[in-house]
Computed example of a mutant assay.
Amino acid sequence: MRNFSFATPRAVQDVTGVDKSAIERLLLLADFSIDLNGVFNDAAGKSHQTLKTVPSTSVQRTVALEVSGQTLNNECVFTDYALTRADTGELTWTAPGVLADGTVPTWS
């Protein structure tokens, strides 16, 4: 994998009363999304073997991120596995994923 980005947003609901001069909000449900980007590799246990069934199955996949000894595990569904061949010959892929099981993303 070359790079990735992820987000752990929370929905909000505006609940501002008519007696307020600024917006009041409540935090609602948590979410998780991830965008993976890499170079095509069809060797055993590598990216293509893991992602090639994204277009044809509804399999949840565990995404485990580890940063400085902290881990963020999420069950995700990946919504696409897009391959791109540049005119210079590189074969790269992207795979966006979203939270699948309703578990709040929590670092441990």
Results as ranks from 00 to 15, higher is better:
residue 60 Q to S: 13
residue 3 N to F: 08
residue 89 G to L: 02
residue 46 K to E: 08
residue 39 V to W: 04
residue 3 N to W: 15
residue 65 L to A: 07
residue 97 G to P: 13
residue 40 F to C: 06
residue 56 S to T: 13
residue 19 D to Y: 08
residue 46 K to P: 09
residue 38 G to K: 00
residue 52 K to W: 15
residue 41 N to T: 00
residue 48 H to E: 11
residue 88 T to Y: 03
residue 55 P to M: 12
residue 9 P to M: 04
residue 99 L to P: 02
residue 22 A to E: 11
residue 108 S to Y: 12
residue 79 T to Y: 04
residue 85 R to E: 12
residue 44 A to Q: 15
residue 16 T to D: 05
residue 25 R to T: 02
residue 101 D to W: 02
residue 19 D to S: 09
residue 94 T to N: 09
residue 53 T to M: 15
residue 70 Q to N: 11
residue 57 T to S: 14
residue 74 N to R: 09
residue 26 L to H: 02
residue 105 P to I: 01
residue 69 G to C: 02
residue 10 R to E: 07
residue 16 T to Q: 04
residue 97 G to H: 02
residue 10 R to F: 14
residue 45 G to N: 03
residue 10 R to Q: 11
residue 79 T to H: 06
residue 84 T to L: 11
residue 36 L to Q: 04
residue 21 S to M: 09
residue 21 S to E: 14
residue 40 F to G: 06
residue 12 V to L: 10
residue 71 T to D: 14
residue 88 T to M: 05
residue 99 L to H: 02
residue 66 E to P: 01
residue 83 L to K: 10
residue 79 T to G: 15
residue 27 L to W: 11
residue 78 F to E: 07
residue 69 G to D: 04
residue 3 N to R: 13
residue 95 A to I: 01
residue 95 A to H: 01
residue 108 S to E: 12
residue 2 R to T: 12
residue 91 L to A: 00
residue 90 E to A: 14
residue 32 F to W: 04
residue 79 T to V: 10
residue 63 V to A: 09
residue 19 D to L: 12
residue 86 A to L: 08
residue 49 Q to E: 14
residue 104 V to R: 07
residue 9 P to T: 05
residue 23 I to Y: 06
residue 30 A to H: 08
